[in-house]
Design a protein around this nucleic acid. Structure first.
Lengths: 196, 196
DNA sequence: AGTTTTACATACCACTGGTATGATAAAGCA
DNA sequence: TGCTTTATCATACCAGTGGTATGTAAAACT
């Protein structure tokens, strides 16, 4: 049988995505061959190239999947932590969750490491802007309205703080001596609250 | 003629390195084939694989070359800027130079983007520690001795500040609206001086 | 002078991402 | 219901890739 019902087709597409995500997360983009993906998914190259135009497009879908999950979780955490006493609370809750993501091997491999190299810089920046950076910028905008940070600094600060968190994630997973998750995040909080 | 004098051999090795560097900088690791490198270098695959064990080793040499150049320049700038009035002066001078490097396409491609993806994380971290991060950590150690920053924060802060600068470099070269080199670096300085 | 070693050049190979073609069952239509 | 079309793959194939094996000539050494 070669033709399936739409539900069956959707299922094979899902299987391919799952296999690709698993392999990209554990072995990285370069060391994951199309053959390995379809093997793990239990299908063939024909199916893969029918559902995805090429390896890079498949990767981009996995990338987006991860980013959307991260985005939803951080936004939810920030929204849940809005406080009337501490204006930093919501922002810090969101960044804390992001930091947790940035400490996972999956996020590091797919988003922070391979993402930049595989997708061109242009595309990576486009999409990255929409998610991580926009969230940080929005958080900072809120703090700026309260007068805790300069309005003109929102953009540069959002870039730097987001990358600071990325670096913190790498540092944690590389087990730098004397570094823990709390340790790192407190340092980040100090960095943030130090802004005028 | 197939065998050359040692000087000639060193020359072809140099040519291969130069061609590889040029192509890695402009096209990236993945889009640069061995054939293209030896073509630009005016030699053959035999020569390349005689001088370098594989494509990754060749890349790592280019990577190290760039890092050493950056390292020398930043250290020199920091040393030249030591001031008796402002304890931050030397550190800021060094980071300013590093920021300049982080804004170039070459450094972004080779060190910040492809380096992580090509070399494994382990190797990248090893070498990165020796250079960029160690310099930042030393600068912070100096500030800590003067009491401008907590001793316990040196490691986490060095990671985060270095990555903040990397992000700033990307932001600049991507021409984020309302962002300039001075703009970004002033924000970085604010971030640093805000630390207790 | 003869032998060994260095510095390549060339031919070759397994594998890769991607394409072209073929096959078959579902869906649309008369 | 029968016929055609089309969606969903499976298979065979291809150009290009990083890497290896082999050949070879000049330098270096004894």
């Amino acid at each position: 049988m070669v033709k399936r019902t739409p539900e069956q087709a959707e299922e094979t597409r899902r299987k391919i995505l799952a296999a690709a995500r698993h392999l990209f997360e554990t072995k990285g983009y370069r060391d994951t061959s199309i053959a390995a993906i379809v093997d793990e998914a239990g299908t063939t190259k024909g199916a893969l190239f029918y559902h995805f135009s090429n390896k890079e497009a498949l990767f981009r879908e996995v990338w987006t999947e991860l980013q959307l999950e991260m985005d939803a979780e951080t936004r939810a955490a920030a929204a849940a932590a809005i406080s009337s006493t501490d204006p930093y609370a919501a922002f810090l809750a969101g960044t804390r969750v992001y930091f947790k993501w940035a400490s996972t091997e999956a996020y590091q491999r797919i988003v922070l490491t391979d993402g930049r190299a595989v997708m061109g810089l242009e595309r990576w920046q486009e999409d990255d802007d929409r998610l991580g950076r926009n969230n940080v910028a929005n958080g900072l905008r809120y703090l700026a309205k309260q007068g805790h940070i300069s309005e003109a600094r929102i953009v540069p600060m959002s870039v730097m703080l987001l990358n600071a968190l990325n670096g913190a994630g790498f540092s944690l997973s590389r087990k730098d001596p004397g570094v823990t998750a709390d340790n790192l995040f407190e340092a980040f909080e100090e960095l943030l609250r130090g802004l005028r």
